[in-house]
Simulated assay, not measured.
Amino acid sequence: MAYIMDTNEEERLKGKTVEVGRAHFETETTRFTILDAPGHKSYVPNMISGASQADIGVLVISARKGEFETGYEKGGQTREHVLLAKTLGVSKLIVVINKMDEPTVKWSKERYDEIESKMAPFLRASGYNVKKDVHFLPISGLLGTNMKTRMDKSICSWWDGPCLFEVLDRIEVPLRDPKGPVRMPIIDKYKDMGTVVMGKIESGTIREGDSLLVMPNKTNVKVIGISLDEHKVRRAGPAENVRVKLSGIEDEDIMAGFVLSSVANPVGAVTEFNAQLQILELLDNAIFTAGYKAVLHIHSVVEECEIVDLIEEIDMKKKKDADPKKKKPKRKPLFVKNGAVVVCRIQVNNLICIENFSDFPQLGRFTLRTEGKTVAVGKVVAVPPAGNPTFSA
């Protein structure tokens, strides 16, 4: 069944997802785009690319003995994926406990409850409101049980909750501004009687005939076609995954991470910015200080970066209890440890398109990775003024 989503030879030979698969389906009320992100730790950068475009996360957990435990233990992929999903803006999570039909599980309520009771505190610690934003349900992906329709009591006597499609239909996704400035991070491009770019519209509405900018190279382009789920449309709005055909630019002049942007209010293009970072877990013997190097993942951008200055360490406990009228002097650290929250200045070699998290969350949240491990998550808190891609000293 994985052949449906895993279409390249590497995936079919290895039996695991490598690229981010893309498919569409509709319920009676909603049209969904599935972004099938890889779960294997070697392909986390591809998972980040998929998750950065998603509104809802469906976290698939195996109920089979040993498989859940392997993903959940320290350093396991379940833990890293939950953390990345939250950081990348996936605000709603459905935890589907799969393989409940497996002979060693046999729709066991005890096994289901065990997994839910272990996952809930971890999800809470990762920033999710478990009561409001997380849904748990049992399924069998192999048999399709409890996915499209509610399962019969003869299969599972103790479950009287909804099926997966019901949960998907009920979830309220964050509203975006259809009248705002156009922001569409480009995840891929190809040539087809013109240049076609793919991505998810995060803000604004794109119409056939529009004049837009491809940033950061400031190229003026014209929209000559829009496709949605392989159907041609005249316009598309926020949260839509689209293919936009452009004139005025060649496909070799576009890279993943560029942003399709409105002319009147273009996205910022910078080589330096200030960020608030939470350090998760550094590699052994690593010190987080000025000069620290990592790989920055922000929307569809992947760039090497360097921490050039630690500005302030924030004590989150004291911040909660602090009197806002009493301003204390900033604590400028020389280095910080695991678990610290710090405001720092980050520098990259090439111009990248980002926004303040408070203005456009999807273009302002990011992760830092090094040697295949996520070491920090953060948000952009200050970008240089337009026309000046770096801060003055």
Rank of each mutant, 00 (worst) to 15 (best):
L246Q: 01
L246R: 00
S247N: 11
S247Y: 10
S247P: 03
S247W: 13
G248V: 12
G248D: 03
G248M: 07
I249N: 10
I249P: 09
I249Y: 04
E250Q: 15
E250L: 13
E250R: 15
E250D: 15
E250K: 15
E250M: 13
E250F: 14
D251A: 15
D251C: 11
D251W: 09
E252G: 05
E252P: 00
E252M: 03
D253V: 00
D253F: 10
D253C: 04
I254Y: 06
I254H: 02
I254P: 00
M255S: 06
M255Y: 13
M255F: 14
A256P: 10
A256F: 01
G257V: 03
G257P: 00
G257A: 06
F258A: 05
F258Y: 14
F258M: 15
F258G: 02
V259E: 05
V259N: 06
V259T: 13
V259C: 07
L260A: 08
L260P: 05
L260F: 05
L260Q: 07
L260D: 09
S261T: 15
S261L: 07
S261D: 07
S261C: 09
S262H: 06
S262A: 07
V263T: 13
V263L: 10
V263A: 04
V263Q: 05
A264K: 13
A264N: 13
N265C: 11
N265F: 08
N265E: 15
P266R: 08
P266Y: 08
P266T: 02
V267T: 12
V267L: 08
V267C: 10
G268R: 07
A269F: 07
A269W: 11
A269L: 01
A269T: 12
A269M: 04
A269D: 15
V270S: 02
V270Y: 10
V270C: 07
V270E: 05
T271P: 00
E272K: 05
E272F: 05
E272M: 13
E272N: 02
F273S: 02
F273H: 03
A275G: 10
A275T: 10
A275N: 02
Q276D: 02
Q276R: 08
Q276C: 04
Q276K: 03
Q276L: 08
L277Q: 01
L277C: 08
L277N: 06
L277P: 04
L277S: 02
L277W: 12
Q278E: 13
Q278Y: 11
Q278F: 06
I279V: 14
I279Q: 05
I279L: 13
L280H: 12
L280T: 03
L280C: 13
E281F: 04
E281D: 11
L282Q: 01
L282H: 03
L282R: 07
L283I: 04
L283Q: 14
L283C: 09
D284E: 15
D284I: 05
N285F: 09
A286F: 11
A286P: 06
A286N: 14
I287C: 06
F288D: 08
F288C: 09
T289A: 14
A290H: 04
A290P: 14
A290G: 10
